[in-house]
Design a protein around this nucleic acid. Structure first.
Lengths: 348, 348
DNA sequence: CTGAAAGCGCTTACAG
DNA sequence: CTGAAAGCGCTTACAG
């Protein structure tokens, strides 16, 4: 084991500076009631001896850990998911800007009791001052119990009408506008037979996107054909499966498909390719998110762009503000969406 | 601020279970000298009251934090770097498997004194039990000072002959074999005019790859033309710049280029494309790493595959083993490399 | 402006 | 097998 560790503590610093530990602490914590000369004298010793107060002792005495947890739930293999990875970095960079650290934790499933226990442990141990959940079901008992316990939690993608605890900080995308843009764009290209591959329906954005799709269609007097409403989740294979089933069903095909997100669109395009069908000649495809790989697809994917980084900034900064000052969100934050036209949709 | 927090502590548990705090602690820490009935009685109360020992108190009393730091240095915008993100997830998943948490920290430059101080603080504060550095220069004063201080540090990509502190755990890729494979493959396709775009020469892998390239060329009696040894770093723009300069120089061109990594190869291919040159018809390109996007390039990039996940597993597990048992690496770990043939090289 | 002392919640020899 | 007590390194009223 390591041995020659830095053994210095506040008593030692106090002795060397000729003051009491109280004064050392006041200097360290930047209290005003320390005359400049004393402060400088102590600071000199602190720097000379490379002294940093022991975090555990500080926390035990009442300070914050200045660490937030980042919980990624249900991410199959997160290590391979570009969007998830971007979210991680985003939270880290924002937190770092506030002088906070991020403890990232991957939770395969909230159905795994042991995994849930480990998440709770992180909060109850006071390892973190608060946590952010990404990818959780809309109403998740684990999250509800943490909120009930009074912990500060930030959530991406949630809508629970009536619930508005101050320690529940929610950020969503404006899926309604996004879907309106998608349907509107396709309608303008004269598409009337528009289908959808849905996302995970236990997450808020799944049904939210679907309902928004229905409303956008209705608004234009466009019928939603049940055969063209395909179940899925937010991953590539789901898009592939869904499109495969549709193509194999022998039923008439829509002229355009809106995918719950770009990964799903990639899967759908893969299935079309394998069936010898071409995008957009044989079918137009529009995604959602503007994934890092969307512009590189063949054809480049038309999609609804969403600003993950901005979303994470709002959530991270908001959570830290809540931790430090107790200021809750005034209301759930709604992140805007934007149409990005590329090559996967054609005019009829 | 949060209020109705779980106030329960070991004294309370002891009272409820009718034992002393010592016994509660023995149960929590799974000590053998507790009779089953006592253990169960205490466990029941612990579970009933959702008790988790306060981490800061445990650490202050001598326990480990079970947290390791992950320091990414010099990553321009890490949030956009697929490989860096994969490394992060990899470390998290491995650490999690050992019951450890990961605190990820991004360090733009080791030349920034304040940034360096913040890294030191994380160690000195005892916020972590050890740390992993990715992307640092081969000989980095910050890292050397942490090692001298006795902290456990894991390093990717380092070679400092003679230095072998037990708390210095190093993992490298077998660049020599990789370059041998690359040059051998090109030679077999009858290439003799082979150039290289180098990586960052302040990192170990930069010069290591270059020297290995020279040796592999020499072994086949192939001359290294200085005009075809292009400076770079490990990022896409460097490959773009290097290739652009070469193409603009008016000098004769090599028939093949080996890039220090795939990102650099992407940049070189972009420059070639912009100059109306085709890969592999006008120039063969071979990369290094097998980046997630390499198979999707046009043409798909031939490259030397490296197993980042395996590397991170060795490093993370090794670091944790060292933290827990004081077992150092028997020797720096060398991760194997492998040739992946795709479409970016042609036979002459 | 400053120090002595209590307290944060654990763990771990020590004694029995 | 078990409890009383010291100790980990801070912070913060409190008193002066």
């Amino acid at each position: 084991m390591a041995s020659k560790r830095n053994e210095i503590n506040s008593i030692e610093i106090a002795r060397l500076a000729g003051v009491s530990r109280s004064t050392v602490s006041r200097v360290v914590n930047n209290y005003p009631n320390v005359p400049p000369e004393t402060r400088e004298k102590v600071m000199r010793i602190i720097e000379q001896y490379n002294y940093f107060p022991n975090l555990s002792a500080q926390v035990l005495a009442g300070k914050k850990t200045r660490t937030i947890g980042l919980f990624l739930v249900g991410s199959g293999s997160v290590a391979g998911d570009i969007v998830a990875n971007m979210l991680i970095s985003s939270v880290i960079e924002n937190a770092s800007g506030c002088g906070y650290y991020v403890l990232t934790h991957i939770l395969r499933s909230t159905a795994d009791g042991e995994a849930v226990r480990r998440v709770k442990e992180i909060f109850y141990q006071r390892r973190i001052d608060g946590g952010i959940f990404i990818g959780a079901p809309n109403e998740e008992p684990l999250i509800e119990s943490l909120i009930a316990e009074g912990f500060a939690v930030g959530i991406v993608d949630q809508h629970l009408p009536g619930k508005s605890d101050p320690n529940r900080l929610v950020v969503n995308f404006d899926n309604a506008t996004g879907m309106e843009l998608a349907v509107g764009f396709l309608a303008e290209l004269n598409h009337r037979d528009i289908g959808i591959i849905n996302g995970a329906m236990n997450r808020y954005s799944g049904p939210d996107k679907y309902e928004s799709f229905r409303r956008a269609m209705a608004r234009r007097g466009l019928a939603v054909n049940p055969d063209w409403v395909l179940p899925g989740d937010f991953h590539e294979p789901a898009g592939y499966e869904a499109m495969n089933r549709l193509l194999g069903s022998g039923k008439p095909l829509p002229t355009a498909i809106i995918a719950a997100n770009d990964s799903v669109a990639f899967g759908a395009m893969r299935a079309l390719r394998e069936h010898g069908l071409r995008v957009p000649d044989d079918m137009s495809i529009i995604g959602f998110d503007d994934h890092a790989l969307s512009a590189m697809q063949q054809p480049a994917l038309t999609t609804i762009r969403v600003d993950f980084k901005s979303q994470m900034k709002h959530l991270t900064d908001g959570l830290i503000r809540y931790i430090e000052t107790g200021t809750p969100f005034s209301e759930p934050y709604l992140e805007p969406t934007e149409l990005v036209i590329r090559d996967s949709c054609r005019r009829l």
